[in-house]
Design a binder for these strands. Structure first.
Length: 751
RNA sequence: GCCCAGGUGGCGGAAUUGGUAUACGCGUACGUUUGAGGGGCGUAUGAGGCAACUCAUCCGGGUUCAAGUCCCGGCCUGGGCACCA
């Protein structure tokens, strides 16, 4: 009674909007129709969700609170608007979060079109503030691959920031980030990202034309071209020089697009001797290379970069630091730079802030108005929700359809009351899914997003299941949300869920992800009509390990259909009266034993989410029951107890047939509200056990003994076995190894 | 290139901590029930061999009384990241 198992619909988003446009209907009615279909499919399948908590994120009663949360993030300084080069899907006509761009070709996660970069002003959430805390998985139980993916995605690097004074630039300095401050003596040139703000300042007049041409070209370049690692490095000297703070050498400043504006400081000290990229660049433009880290023993090949970072590297050609182990030099040089006022330890992350604005209609409108006087202002909370207008043109044009809706655009500034313009972007749907579990705790509350008492009682989630494909999206965002809301004083816990488990993904028969466009989608309705939903459910659980997934192949469903038929048969006793012989009594005892072993095994399997093996154990018990029934023993207590147990254990997998059989057997309604069967170890222990006898690790014989047979007795019996004697050939065994209750292994003498 | 996960019969897959490899199901064959078909039920089913046995968990080594499981090297498949300094 204290388990919440809710269901809701993540109904906003591009796929719904695009599908609606294709069909010439509005997204709201299209979505509502889909929800109706899905709800009835869930019912048919016997999914026992708590429908009193159902929600849909596209319902104004829900997105009112998504908007309210946006305002809270805005007030907390965690939502900001910034200009930046963002990923743009030219087909869907929308910006994407970095997490939504996939693969080497930089494709849109929804439609697969390669994305392009556009300079746009967008809304961001400061997930980077939580980079460190998101790396901490203590206290939560997540699958190792998810932890690794999140850790890599956050990409924490420790190193140093170093300031390089600019020659003839007054007190101008170029700050770089490096993970290898120990190599600073080898920094023979610098490279700025073309977008770096100092580029236009430092470009000399004679180089300016080249520099501007390069910057313009880099801006036009697609992300794919720019990030291709195979591509030859390009760059331009900007005419100015900086000073290496350690060697005091004059080093040239270049720009090149292999330096990214968004990571570190957007500028690097180039150490060609110890970085492959810098090395390639230096070779191409004939820049000097100086080796400053060498293996403690051995030479360095001078025709390539030496990037190995082993424990026994030492510094060379590095002034007073020469000869110092590299690992030690990292700290020593960083400290020296700090003393000189030219840097210090620094940490850099690859994770960027979360881009949350979308130029599409079917999402929660961002609750902001722009006042010419007061700038962006949140919509007052009592004016929420900002509702989506229904009379709009849905065609994707590159700007939000809301931009052409006069009534929507018109707003007033909450501060001065003067006319203001409403924000027309909507929120990334991952905003909706970052807090829905909180809403489940009090889904109908119309005075608050959630009832703190209910949240305190239910949250955090005990077990969260979902696909691994959301490793660096939803599963990262919802952790960030909870931490941010905690810091706003709105929640008192740190993590959305204590335990995460990933189910495998069932692919299409063509081994591809199921999708409408590929035409490989399986509709459960047809199978359900043919075999019944219990058989479909049982098959889905039986077909393979729950966490594995694989291509869809329904050929085994017949087996589950037959299995349920056998369950039906064994639940209808065919005889009355008890055992008629000693063999019968033996059989009944074995059945009782099997019943209790099954309780233990199935319970454990369910706890471990090993549904396929749980079902196989239930099949074994059913087969045993069929055998007893055939032997005329179905009138006994042991048989009846076993059938009841079978039904109880099977009920979660096949809720309908078990409920029906339970009722037919005159048991109290409902089977789904009965206590779980308890396992009695005494009843599960066998009177005799079969002990394999090995010779040199190979099975040669079996002994049937009582569990309490002493070891020396077992050894005697094993050695007496004629199968064993054949291998001993009259000699005494070298050793006899016994694993109590498991096996005996007789080791023959060598030779 | 770097980081993960995986590779077991014709197929999906089983095998807590090294301890009877192939559970359970599909498929197949034969038998049985039926007027026939479908369905049900029963038996068999890793490979080779008449048999005793031998060989088998991607390949090659190793540790061990004993290896699908542990160690070393390689191959293949799937996933993630990818000019992140």
């Amino acid at each position: 009674y204290n388990v919440m198992f809710p269901m809701g619909f993540d109904s906003f988003g591009l796929p719904a909007e695009n599908a609606a446009i294709d069909r010439g209907v509005d997204p709201a009615s299209w979505t509502a129709a889909n929800i109706d279909t899905m709800r009835s499919q869930f019912r048919t399948m016997g999914c026992m969700f708590d429908w009193s908590r159902e929600l849909a994120v596209s319902d104004p009663a829900y997105y009112r609170w998504t908007q309210w949360l946006f305002v809270q993030f805005f007030k907390a300084g965690l939502a900001y608007r910034a200009m930046g080069a963002v990923d743009w899907c030219p087909k869907d006509q929308v910006v994407l979060a970095r997490e939504q761009v996939e693969g080497a070709e930089r494709r849109c996660w929804r439609c697969g079109t390669p994305v392009i970069k556009r300079d746009l002003e967008q809304w961001f959430f400061r997930i980077t503030n939580y980079a460190d805390e998101l790396l901490d998985f203590r206290g939560i139980d997540y699958p190792e691959p998810i932890r690794l993916m999140q850790t890599n995605w956050i990409g924490r690097s420790e190193g140093a920031e170093i300031d390089f004074p600019v020659e003839a630039g007054g007190d101008q300095r170029i700050r770089v980030f490096t993970t290898r401050p120990d190599t600073v003596f080898g920094a023979t040139f610098m490279v700025l990202a073309p977008e770096h703000p100092l580029v236009s300042v430092l470009a000399t007049d004679e180089q300016r034309a080249d520099v501007e041409a390069y910057v313009a070209q880099a801006g036009r370049e697609t992300e794919i071209d720019r990030l291709s690692t195979e591509r030859e490095k390009t760059g331009v000297f900007i005419g100015s020089y900086a000073t290496n703070p350690m060697t005091q050498e004059r080093i040239p400043i270049w720009i090149a697009d292999y330096v990214l504006p968004g990571y570190g400081t957007g500028a690097i000290m180039a150490v060609p001797a110890h970085d492959e990229r810098d090395f390639a660049f230096a070779r191409k433009y004939d820049l000097s290379v100086r080796y400053v880290v060498v293996p403690a023993s051995g030479e360095v090949a001078s025709d390539q970069a030496f990037v190995a970072h082993t424990a026994d590297e030492v510094l060379a050609d590095s002034g007073e630091f020469s000869g110092m182990p590299a690992a030690e030099a990292i700290t020593a040089i960083t400290r020296r730079l700090a003393d000189m006022g030219l840097g210090g330890p620094a940490v850099s992350y690859r994770i960027r802030d979360w881009l949350v604005s979308r130029q599409r209609y079917w999402g929660a409108p961002i609750p902001i108005v722009y006042c010419p006087q007061h700038g962006p202002q949140p919509v007052p909370e009592d004016e929420l929700p900002v509702k989506l207008p229904e009379d709009v043109d849905f065609a994707p044009t590159g700007v939000s359809p809301l931009q052409s809706h006069e009534g929507f655009l018109k707003a007033t500034c909450p501060i001065c009351g003067e006319p203001a313009r409403r924000e027309t972007d909507t929120m990334d749907t991952f905003m909706d899914s970052s807090w829905y579990f909180l809403r489940y705790c009090s889904p109908n509350n119309d005075t608050a997003a959630w009832d703190p008492e209910q949240v305190a009682a239910w949250m955090p989630i005990d077990l969260y299941t979902g696909g691994a494909e959301h490793a660096v999206m939803h599963l990262l965002y919802f952790r960030f949300f909870i931490k941010a809301l905690r810091d706003m004083g709105l929640l008192a816990f740190d993590e959305p869920t204590l335990m995460l488990r990933n189910q495998g993904q069932i692919l299409g028969a063509d081994h591809q992800r199921m999708s409408k466009s590929r035409g490989n989608v399986q509709n459960p309705d047809e199978l359900t009509r043919r075999y019944g939903s219990d058989a479909v459910r049982a098959f889905l659980m039986f077909v393979g390990p729950w966490d594995q997934g694989g291509p869809w192949n329904p050929s085994g469903i017949e087996g589950l259909h037959r299995f349920l038929g056998r369950v039906w048969n064994v639940a209808h006793p065919a005889s009355s009266g008890g055992p008629k012989s000693a063999a019968d009594s033996e059989l009944l005892q074995a059945l009782r034993r099997a019943t209790h072993t099954t309780i233990a095994g199935v319970t454990k399997d369910y706890e471990r989410l090993h549904f396929n093996t749980a079902i196989s154990k239930l099949m074994e018990l059913t087969n045993a029951l069929a055998h007893e029934r055939h032997s005329g023993l179905s009138g006994t207590d042991a048989y009846a107890e076993s059938v009841d147990t079978l039904l109880l254990l099977l009920a979660p997998v096949a809720p309908h047939i078990t409920e029906e059989l339970w009722a037919q057997r005159g048991r109290p309604y409902s089977i789904h509200q009965q206590a779980w069967p308890t396992y009695d170890p005494a009843l599960a222990t066998a009177d005799t056990i079969e002990l394999p006898v090995q010779v040199d690790g190979r099975l040669r014989d079996r002994l049937v003994v009582t569990p309490d047979t002493p070891a020396d007795e077992i050894e005697r019996m094993a050695l007496e076995s004629e199968h064993v004697q054949r291998y001993l050939d009259g000699r005494p065994p070298a050793r006899v190894i016994q694993v109590p209750g498991k096996l005996v292994n007789v080791v023959t003498p060598k030779g």
